[in-house]
Every structure is written in structure tokens, then in C-alpha cells.
Amino acid sequence: MYDTPKSGVDVDAREVKISARGVQVFYGDTHAIKDVDVEIQDKMVTAFIGPSGCGKSTFLRCLNRMNDTIDICRVEGNINLDGENIYDAKVDPVQLRAKVGMVFQKPNPFPKSIYDNIAYGPRIHGLAKNKADLDEIVEKSLRRGAIWDEVKDRLHAPGTGLSGGQQQRLCIARAVATEPEVLLMDEPCSALDPIATAQVEELIDELRGNYSVVIVTHSMQQAARVSQKTAFFHLGNLVEFGETGQIFTNPEDPRTESYITGRIG
């Protein structure tokens, strides 16, 4: 139904959505991210791979300032979204997170109805003028989350009653509902079974038509399947960043090669 991800996309023609320069992250005294430069382009999927504890999730959480919620975390360097520094004092993280949505490792639907889960973002950001408007946003988001057919008859049932894969697609739909420009996904399939994983991966590929998607994964196959560009992190350093095909077939750095061939990680 869709092309293999690597082909048919002109990687360099896309505009740069997020550019990070010299990013350092500290957790108290621990230096978690060391001088990372990366450019994330619009309308494509960028994957962050690397062994556990390499800092890929930490870096992802810098992109929508989720790290602000951790007291001991300190971020240095520049991260620009459409040319604007998101760590600038004038930037309100709340507005930023509406533009840069996030999907988490474990599906975390709120203990509310499916409808209210989706409507939560639009409500707090005031995206709907009236009830009909909101209904429309909810339906559109659930369709984009590829879960509309499964839940349209029970929109007012609790979201926690869905299966794991459905819950994760609900969470993606919830993130989409606020009309973000970038979607960050932190190992979105790690808690799912293979069938649910396939469904979510398929969804990710569709989402790239509208959004810039960044996905953290520890599964190299998944990175190869869904992403156009891949960044390899190791011990807080960005070791290699390039086209996914390039990274997997012909890595430049020996560490990348070791990881891909299974010698480290």
C-alpha cells in the first residue's frame, strides 16, 4: 500500500524544521548529552537509534522542552524551530508543546472517555469554536490516528479499556488533535505486540505526509522500516547522522557499524 520508505523521497529538498547546535544536557552532575548538532527536516521521519542510556530519549525530550519538568535537568546550546530558538526566554513552553507534540513509550490514555482524550488538547488550546467543531476535530484526529473505524461506536467508553495497540494509536490521535507541526515519538512500539507494532509503523509512515516526525527506537529494523534519516547516539554523543539507507548499508563510523552488526548495544 505504500512505498518502501527510503525510496521516492528527495531527502535534501525538504526544508529544515528543527536545527540543534551544540546541545549539552546535564542531569545534576551527569553530562547526558555532549555537543550534539542535528537538523530535522519537515515531512519526513527521522529516527534516533542507539543502545539504552545513550541519551536519545533525553535529546528527544529537549525538542519540546519536556525536560523542563525535571528539576535537576539543565540544557545548553541552541535548538531552533523554524529559525526560532525554543529555549529563548520569550518562548512559552506551553505554546511550544502545542506545536511539537509527543507520544510516549507506554500508551498513556487519560482515565476519561475516548472522545475526551482526543478533545483534551483542542479544548485547552481553544481550537474549537463550538461542539460541532470539536466533534469534527475528534473525528478527523481519530481518522488520522487510524483508529476511527474501531472506536466510532464507543466514543464515550473509557480510553483505558482499549487494547495496547489501540491505546497507542489513540495517543497518537490525541497528539495529532492539537495540530502540531512536529511529532516526537519516544519508543512508541516498545510496549506493543508485533501486530500492533506493524499497525503503528504503518501509521507513522502515513503521518509523514503532514508532519515532521522524530522517532526514538531501539529496534534497528524499525528505524530501517519507517525512517528516511537516522541519527546514531552513543554515550551521549551523536556518532553519525545521515540517510537511513546510508547508515544501515554503509556506515562511516566504526561504532555505528559495531552497533548495527550487533557487537555493541
Binding site: 520569550k90 518562548v91 511550544l96 476511527w148 502515513e206
Partner: peptide, 26 residues
């Protein structure tokens, strides 16, 4: 997955509130 693909592509609304992050809206 047909329901997902339908509204995509051309008819994605260009963000109406595409605004600078530097200004805080009302």
C-alpha cells in the same frame, strides 16, 4: 487504513495559527 489516508495530502489545512513562538498569544 483507508480511513486514515483519505483526509491526508492536499486537503491538510495550512496551519491558520502559524505564528512565531516568540510572541505569546492572548
Amino acid at each position: 487504513m483507508t480511513d486514515a489516508t483519505a483526509p491526508m495530502g492536499a486537503d491538510v489545512p495550512k496551519k491558520a495559527r502559524k505564528s512565531s513562538l516568540y510572541g505569546t498569544d492572548d
